[in-house]
Write a protein that binds this DNA or RNA. Structure first.
Lengths: 221, 221
DNA sequence: TATTTATTCAATAAATCTATTGAATGATTG
DNA sequence: CAATCATTCAATAGATTTATTGAATAAATA
């Protein structure tokens, strides 16, 4: 094999892989599947796009070996092909968060409107856990909490939070987390808690970040 | 800001960032700039494409904040905007190497043709260095060696290696490295050494991988 | 076996990406 | 100040990507 052909083959393949990721909906799909497997219907609902379109995007991801599928009953369940896919996605995501002014501006604006001014990183949370003075609140849907959550976290899905605020004393500082830095559940929760005088901050990252770092995780059977 | 708009903004930005990387030539440019800054002319020469086309690709990378430029005399010098860019590129690169059968096949075929069957990882090299029985050979051009190399490595640029084989005794095992897993200098060197009965293997990764891990590096003034 | 249901496929037009060409720019040099 | 030189810009045609639509498929259910 000629050197020229070797390089062109390699970089063409890598470009195809990158191209498969380089679409806003497909990035959202990867981010969603980092939580766990999902059916086509669930993904389409989450992204608010048509089933046919979702299916096509999934075919692209599958041809690039970024996701795999297994069928069960009527449904096709998609999942990420490996943790490495999530790692690459997080690497791009963090590059964007740290270096794109427009993303920083959007995040800031969105959170300031919700009075969620300050976030806390996983590393900072780990310190607080060691000190023992923190309450970790998982506001994702019950199913996702059951599939896996930060060990020691308490579950109050965001759509139940308003009615269940009394359960939260506010003795300890509350750290709220959800699916990731672009998941809005935690921001909504912080807004709600702040308005009731319960001091809280959102976790900058999400559950997949915690899990992929092999930090302690609990699943309900 | 509506949630819908928030997500669409964020993922559109991230998709644009990813799209800026998703072209074979632009990936080659990033890989090259991971070595250090280069002029437009040098990049074009390396990729064997026209200056105008190179310039256009560089504009794309620049708009995405992946590279920066500074002018000196007649020349525009481009460099990666931060180490994080290199990290993301490596993450994608390794995802491809580990999960795309076609890349694995191409790498294998190319190296087998050069009798470079086995490579050694940075982690394995570190162990060997500790044991003290390894000779590290840098076969990149002199300039790149001068700009920074693995501390303790010896420099014989690939185009001088044939004449200077006598300098290599073969007492210790030789590990050859160059720019990265797709750099062919090291494979050529291993082929040459193997044919002369000097046992050698190539380093799987390259100098940028070593440097980005903050392992010991030496530069010549 | 016929029907239902989730998903995939195929065709299409609009938008975007790409390499090429040759001219324009603008800083440095003589 | 004119000439030189590296780089960028602009225009363009061909290729690829995208969302939409409606039909096709194939497994499960009645």
């Amino acid at each position: 094999m000629e050197k020229q052909e070797f390089k062109s083959r390699i970089y063409n393949e890598l470009s195809a892989l990158t191209k498969a990721m380089s679409n806003p909906f497909r990035l959202q799909i990867i981010d969603l599947l980092a939580q766990g497997s999902r059916t086509v219907e669930e993904i389409a609902g989450q992204l608010s796009i048509s089933i046919a379109n979702t299916s096509q995007h999934l075919q692209v991801l599958k041809s690039a070996n970024l996701v795999t599928v297994y069928k069960q009953g009527h449904y096709a369940h998609y999942r990420v092909a490996s943790d490495e896919v999530v790692r690459s996605w997080h690497s791009l995501r963090d590059l964007g968060i740290n270096r794109l002014a427009e993303i920083d501006r959007t995040l800031r604006q969105f959170r300031e409107e919700r009075e969620s001014f300050e976030s806390i990183s996983i590393d900072e949370l780990l310190q607080k856990i060691e000190q023992g003075n923190v309450m970790i609140l998982d506001v994702r849907p019950q199913k996702e909490f059951a599939a896996g959550h930060i060990t020691g976290a308490r579950s109050i899905p965001i759509d139940q939070l308003a009615q269940r605020l009394a359960e939260l004393s506010g003795e300890k500082e509350t750290v709220v987390y959800c699916r990731g830095p672009f998941c809005v559940f935690a921001d909504d929760a912080v807004q709600m808690l702040t308005q009731r005088g319960i001091p809280s901050r959102r976790l900058e990252e999400g559950f997949p970040d915690w899990k992929i770092r092999n930090l302690p995780v609990t699943a309900l059977i």
